[in-house]
């Protein structure tokens, strides 16, 4: 292990386990989408983002937007780990009256910047935040996590045109490129390849990494902006359902919730690899 992955790898496994327990209890969907970005979130919240759980509205904090809002269980898990709120809250995920709504929600949840859920909203909002920081000469950065499926949304491509026009080098897009979207495989539904070339052609600085290799993640996130005057995009090649053998690369885990036996097996697998 290199760098700080001694710390971030256990964090990734912890939030994987938490999100599995949350989705199990809630009988909710989207565990595959949570697991595929666990390593990215662990490095972001473990090493990269300048945030202060004691002052979630600290004006100089880095902003993080989960545009793929359906993967929110694991965002709530990592925020609880970082101490934005009590980990007991996680038991209320998806329950009647809970602030932990089934898509990322800012209302009443410290640390969540933007409420998302409908796809194609996070990057344009991130552009607005980055523009405010740029023109206000503020040093913080804006990170936006996108799914591959949501790149079908035209609104993203409006934002992808916009950001380089205004030299938003304080903006970082991360694509959780697990190759499986809601109702099919990306290459069969709406092929994105060559994805890096597309972002390059739109004047972004591009880096492609293994989205489960903590050293690669840390190296990429730690060296933004990749070019001065350009927004950065990290295309993170990932595996949907990563970390739980029977969930990996299976479309059905976009929808299914594990039963008691499956939860036990999944948690056991995560412990072995911790």
């Amino acid at each position: 292990m290199s760098g700080n992955s001694i710390f971030t790898k256990p964090l990734a496994q912890k939030i994987r386990a938490d999100s599995l327990r949350m989705v199990y209890k809630a009988n909710a969907s989207h565990i595959g989408a949570c697991l595929s970005m666990a390593d990215l979130l662990a490095v972001l919240y473990g090493e990269i983002l300048q945030v202060d759980p004691e002052q979630p509205d600290w004006s100089e904090r880095d902003r993080f937007i989960l545009s793929k809002g359906h993967g929110t269980a694991i965002l709530y898990a990592v925020l609880a780990e970082r101490g934005f709120f009590s980990s007991q809250w996680l038991d209320t995920y998806f329950q009647d009256g809970s602030v932990l709504v089934g898509h990322a929600t800012r209302h009443g949840v410290p640390g969540v910047e933007v409420s998302t859920g409908s796809l194609g909203h996070g990057l344009p909002i991130g552009c607005g935040m980055a523009l405010a920081a740029k023109r206000g000469k503020q040093p913080h950065r804006v990170f936006v996590m996108l799914s591959d499926g949501e790149l079908d949304e035209g609104s993203n491509w409006e934002a992808i045109l916009f950001a380089p026009q205004h030299q938003l080098d304080n903006l970082v897009a991360i694509v959780d490129y697990n190759k499986i979207q809601s109702f099919g495989v990306v290459s069969e539904v709406m092929e994105l390849a060559p994805l890096g070339d597309k972002w390059s052609a739109f004047r972004w600085a591009v880096r492609e990494i293994d989205g489960h290799d903590h050293a690669q993640i840390e190296s990429a996130l730690g060296s933004v902006p990749f070019e001065m005057g350009k927004p950065s995009v990290i295309i993170a090649h990932t595996t949907k359902g990563k970390g739980v053998s029977f969930m990996e690369n299976k479309l059905e885990w976009h929808y299914k919730s594990p039963n008691t036996e499956q939860l036990a097996q999944a948690l056991a697998e995560l412990e072995m690899t911790e």
């Binding site: 909002i125 991130g126 552009c127 607005g128 935040m129 980055a130 405010a132 409006e158 934002a159």
Partner: peptide, 14 residues
């Protein structure tokens, strides 16, 4: 679409 969301992002910053 981008105009409206950028406006939201700017407004979130006060």
């Amino acid at each position: 679409q981008n105009m409206t969301s950028v406006a939201a992002g700017l407004a979130l910053e006060g």
